[in-house]
Design a protein around this nucleic acid. Structure first.
Length: 476
RNA sequence: GGCCCCUUCGUCUAGCGGUCAGGACACCGGCCUCUCACGCCGGUAACAGGGGUUCGAGUCCCCUAGGGGUCACCA
């Protein structure tokens, strides 16, 4: 969308904050999309922040892959990517502030001891949580390692005001004295999130529903830091066909994998956004249309099941109306990947090929597969089709057609059609009798675009060569 | 298990007290047709259950059931 230069940037600031412990998967992408469209709709600022405080599992490969995925999707972030690992000073400063104000305390309990506490509480039928052993043990022994915990209230309640869920009340008795800085000095997720969101002046936190239960913990950090909370919107999640959380088991769920499988970014975006969001009966939206109409209020609160068939349908819709040049480029790249040179046929011809294939391909991969035979020197015949259609009976017809094709002037689909009709009239056969054997001879199989167009696109030389090869086979 | 969220066709959804409960994907017919598609026409299919509130409830409230999430020195 062209930015209206008269439109002032609003105070709306949102962030998408994935961890680089895995690929950007479609669930995360949808969350990112909601954030991004919300920001654009309000002429606000969309920020990308990588949460890489997990030293064990974060990798640079995933970091790069996440950026690559966004690049492919065509989502540009107004700020970032910020990385939490570069912002340690900020967290340390906040932690010290909390320590000196008494909101946080040093805890020398070992993980084993804390686990034991939780077990004891569980055995008594109570909420398993840290028991507060170190809360008031202010004199600490030197050389004993410690972590920092945030002192949680034992009574009362913490209310999360959510745009979608309304006021959600959590009993403070459920809350733990959570660790905000680990023994190794690394700050923890729930702490960094709040500190960063404050520092980045985030106005709306839009994230998955799985974070709702975490929110009161973060609210506690805001309160301890004496900062106002942002507005929250916890969106529904995407589930697999088994109604379980999306995972590797459901197949390809990384965004980049959809690229590999021949999906167009516009189609993926359209599909993902429509999961939970709608605008009347409209199914197909350009980015600009989504920007114009997106509103958090229209978001569905219930989980959505990922439906690959509908994505496929949408993808084909996008392929049907895609720019021809783009499709040719995609075709060329796909062919080269398989070691087939695209330029055995002219670019104009390839444009004709993708035009024939666009109504027959639900993915770019399908399209390339459907175009293979145009570019192979020697096609592979499907045995079943060959034995059914390449018979001595059909070979006579094909031979006649071959001679007619050899005579025609320009090898246009119209002229090819005339050639067919001359043979059909002469032999008093219907088109089907002639077309299927020719199709098998030309394409190797029984499925292809219209036979006149196919021959015309393939060109006279290659067409006759293949016809001859098929004829030779029958006569053997 | 505690706490939290959710519940309209198989799936995505429209609906925001009065509709024959609409659209889309998928599926099933039909038309078109040289195959496969595309396109066009038509069809099957839903308010989880039970209580209220109301003249009237898919729409509001409660309960039950089911599904999901979360309870870490992971994010």
């Amino acid at each position: 969308m062209i930015k209206d230069k008269f439109l002032m940037t609003s105070d709306i600031r949102v962030r998408f904050a994935p961890s680089n412990t895995g690929h950007l998967h479609i669930g995360g992408a949808r969350t990112a999309l909601f954030n991004w469209f919300f920001a654009k709709h309000h002429a606000g600022t969309a920020i990308l922040r990588i949460e890489d405080t997990d030293r064990q599992r974060s990798t640079e490969e995933y970091y790069d892959a996440i950026l690559e995925a966004f690049e492919w999707l065509g989502l540009e972030w107004d700020e970032g990517p910020y990385r939490q690992s570069n912002r340690m000073d900020l967290y340390q400063e906040a932690a010290e502030k909390l320590l000196s104000s008494g909101a946080a305390f040093r805890c020398t309990c070992t993980p084993e001891e804390v686990n034991a506490m939780r077990e004891r509480a569980r055995a008594k039928g109570k909420t398993p949580k840290y028991d507060g052993t170190c809360r008031d043990r202010y004199e600490k022994e030197p050389n004993v390692p410690f972590c920092l915990r945030l002192r949680a209230a034992d009574t009362g309640e913490t209310i999360v005001d959510d745009i979608l869920a309304g006021e959600v009340v959590f009993e403070n008795s459920q809350l733990d004295d959570m660790v905000i800085v680990r023994t190794d000095g690394m700050p923890t997720y729930n702490f960094c999130v709040a500190v960063d969101d404050i520092d980045m002046r985030i106005s709306h936190v839009i994230r998955g529903n799985d974070h709702l239960s975490n929110t009161p913990k973060q609210v506690l950090v805001y309160q301890a830091l004496q900062e106002a909370t942002p507005k929250f919107a916890h969106i529904s999640m995407i589930l697999g066909s088994d109604k379980k959380r999306l995972s590797k088991r459901h197949g390809a769920d990384s965004v980049l994998e959809y690229k590999e499988r021949g999906f167009l970014p516009e189609a993926l975006i359209n599909y993902l956004v429509r999961l939970g969001w709608s605008h009347g009966d409209q199914e197909i939206f350009s980015k600009d249309e989504i920007i114009a109409n997106f509103a958090l209020e229209n978001l569905n609160r219930s989980a959505a099941i990922f439906n690959p068939e509908k994505l496929l349908w949408l993808n084909q819709e996008y392929i049907k109306s895609a720019d021809g040049g783009f499709l040719v480029d995609s075709l060329d790249a796909g062919l080269r990947k398989q070691g087939l040179p695209p330029d055995v046929l002219s670019r104009k011809t390839r444009e004709g090929i993708v035009d024939e294939l666009r109504t027959r391909s639900s993915t770019l991969v399908d399209m390339i597969e459907g175009a293979r035979f145009f570019f192979e020197d020697d096609i592979e015949l499907d045995e079943k089709a060959a034995s059914k259609f390449l018979t001595s009976e059909s070979s006579e017809l094909m031979l006649k057609l071959r001679n007619e094709l050899n005579k025609i002037d320009a090898f246009s689909s119209e002229n090819v059609k005339s050639a067919f009709h001359r043979v059909m009239d002469e032999e008093a056969v219907k088109l089907g009798k002639l077309a299927q054997p020719v199709r098998v001879a030309i394409t190797g199989g029984t499925i292809s675009p219209g036979i006149f167009e196919t021959l015309s696109l393939l060109g006279r030389d290659r067409s006759l060569y293949r016809l001859d090869a098929a004829l030779g086979r029958v006569n053997q």
